[in-house]
Design a protein around this nucleic acid. Structure first.
Length: 278
DNA sequence: CCCCAGTCCTGCGGGC
DNA sequence: TGCCCGCAGGACTGGG
């Protein structure tokens, strides 16, 4: 499931291949089982991107943004199983959209959105609507100071783990990294967001930086379902560094006295060590 | 406003 | 061995 590190990896893989290139046409793949959520409609989308030059590719929380020369933005939300690829997809039948580009020597000829489950979305937005999307998101998890954490978490009474998934409070963290960050910070996922001490807030801020930056260096986490791949359809490596996620019953790597437990919070799995996370 | 449950979707793993 | 159910969860929606 692409979270901040996985989306950042996709963006870094795409950028050198597609920035400065011109889109010739957008193909809505015929082999798609069921169309994903796309706006505007295919005909209008195709017409608006044809002939456009790509001026930038960047990450907005868990979204990939492809910036076009006429100040329009293609915003891709991979959700659970979406990938942005410049190489062969894992399976042909889950290809959704393919952007064909004017040829350039030594570069790929297209990039595409592939999505096994089809929960992802692709939208073409003008500057105003792009700004609206930005405005509903909280600060990016990698750009937050301890004070930012304190301020954002003061807005909710939910447990810290649940609050970390709330994109309007903190943007970019998903279920996997929320558990890993709280373990690294030695903070219980059940602790009330508003009752965290300054020391705990500072630990969460630092752990977020460490975990997310390290995960980016490892090009993200490819789980057992094997869905996540980078832009070149290669596995990430950070799954080998996980301390608690999907490790129920295993001894805690840090304190050795605890065992990793799994609980459900807001209908999602949380993994933590009940001994060293307080 | 806050919180929870349901919805979308497919592949896989557990259980019988 | 084979089949079927339930689970995985990001973001959104509707109801209480």
């Amino acid at each position: 499931m692409p979270e901040l590190p996985e989306v950042e990896t996709m963006v870094r893989g795409l950028r050198p291949e597609i920035v400065g290139r011109t889109i010739i046409e957008l193909e809505f793949c015929a082999c798609t089982r069921r169309p994903i959520q796309v706006s505007p409609s295919p005909g209008k989308f195709r017409k608006q991107v044809a002939g456009q030059k790509i001026t930038g590719v960047w990450r907005l929380a868990k979204r990939v943004v492809v910036e076009l020369a006429d100040a329009q933005f293609i915003v891709i939300e991979p959700r659970m199983t979406g990938l942005m690829l410049v190489s062969e997809p894992p399976t042909p039948e889950h290809r959704r959209l393919c952007w064909h580009m004017a040829p350039k020597r030594g570069k790929c000829s297209s990039f595409e959105f592939w999505d096994r489950r089809g929960l992802g979305t692709v939208r073409l937005l003008d500057s105003d609507r792009m700004e609206e999307v930005r405005n509903v998101l909280g600060p990016d998890a990698l750009r937050m100071s301890t004070d930012d954490w304190k301020q954002q978490l003061s807005r909710t009474s939910r447990p810290i783990k649940v609050a970390m998934l709330e994109q309007k409070l903190i943007a970019g963290i998903g279920n996997l990294y929320a558990s890993e960050i709280l373990h690294e910070a030695s903070v219980s996922p059940k602790r009330s967001s508003q009752r965290l001490t300054n020391k705990q807030l500072s630990a969460i801020q630092a752990a977020t930086q460490r975990i997310l930056k390290e995960a980016i260096q490892y090009e993200g986490s490819t789980l057992g379902d094997g869905t996540y791949r980078n832009a070149l359809n290669k596995d990430g490596g950070y799954q080998n560094k996980h301390q608690v996620y999907q490790k129920e019953g295993e001894p805690c790597q840090r304190c050795a006295a605890g065992v990793v437990r799994r609980i459900v919070q807001a209908q999602r799995s949380t993994f933590y060590c009940s001994k060293c996370q307080r």
